[in-house]
Amino acid sequence: MVPTEELRPAFPSAMADLRDIPLAEMPALSLDQLGRVLGRVLPGPVANPMPSGAFQSSI
């Protein structure tokens, strides 16, 4: 068997393991956040999260 150590990517998957989160708890994650934990596989609005550090109005 060829050693495989070198094949390890520097960054692990961007996709979190959602099998460990009960479905009932899942909607606590916002769409933006789901877009992030699902990695880059999603099309559409979830791939366009809110700007980070966004303005918070309070008037």
């Binding site: 994650l29 916002s30 956040q33 992030r36 999260p49 809110m50 700007p51 980070s52 550090g53 966004a54």
Partner: peptide, 27 residues
Amino acid sequence: RTFDSIIATLAGGDSGTEALGLAPVRM
């Protein structure tokens, strides 16, 4: 938004708001 921000940061993401978290302000 306040709760989403906290949950997002607990999960290792950005808060998405200037009011919480360590993400750089970009506005």
